[in-house]
């Protein structure tokens, strides 16, 4: 197995780990972190798979990753602002249907 394949598989692993966290965690901040881990997994996969030939990596996936990072940063900022508003209003940074659990 080549090194880039190892990185790609690690990317898939991060994606799955993040998905698990998104579903299992109740605190919204942890959910957002989980989404960011999923995103990093996708970016890692893209960068790893871009290395087709040993000397010349394909630049297009790198451009995509940069775009993806911009989107992830803005989405995280929006999510954090929403969490703050929700916490100020309800006192808890959790979604209502998950607040029954201790």
């Amino acid at each position: 197995m080549s090194l880039s394949m190892l990185y790609a598989l690690a990317g898939v692993g991060l994606f799955v780990l993040g998905l698990h966290g998104l579903i299992v965690q109740t605190h919204l901040l942890r959910k957002i972190l989980a989404l960011n881990i999923m995103g990093s997994g996708v970016f890692m996969l893209m960068v790893a798979l871009a290395r087709r030939a040993p000397e010349n990596p394909d630049p297009v996936p790198h451009a995509m990753v940069i775009t993806g990072i911009v989107v992830a940063v803005s989405a995280t900022a929006l999510a954090l602002a929403l969490i703050l508003r929700l916490q100020a209003m309800t006192g808890r940074a959790e979604l209502p249907e998950q607040q029954t659990r201790p």
Binding site: L22, L45, M46, A79
Partner: peptide, 25 residues
């Protein structure tokens, strides 16, 4: 709460879609 839930769902969907794009590319 509705906006927050929609954001989580929307981001999850987009990331799955992006992974599909990565595989196809």
């Amino acid at each position: 709460a509705g906006a927050m839930r929609y954001l989580l769902v929307s981001l999850l969907g987009s990331l799955c879609y992006l992974l599909g794009v990565a595989l196809l590319y």
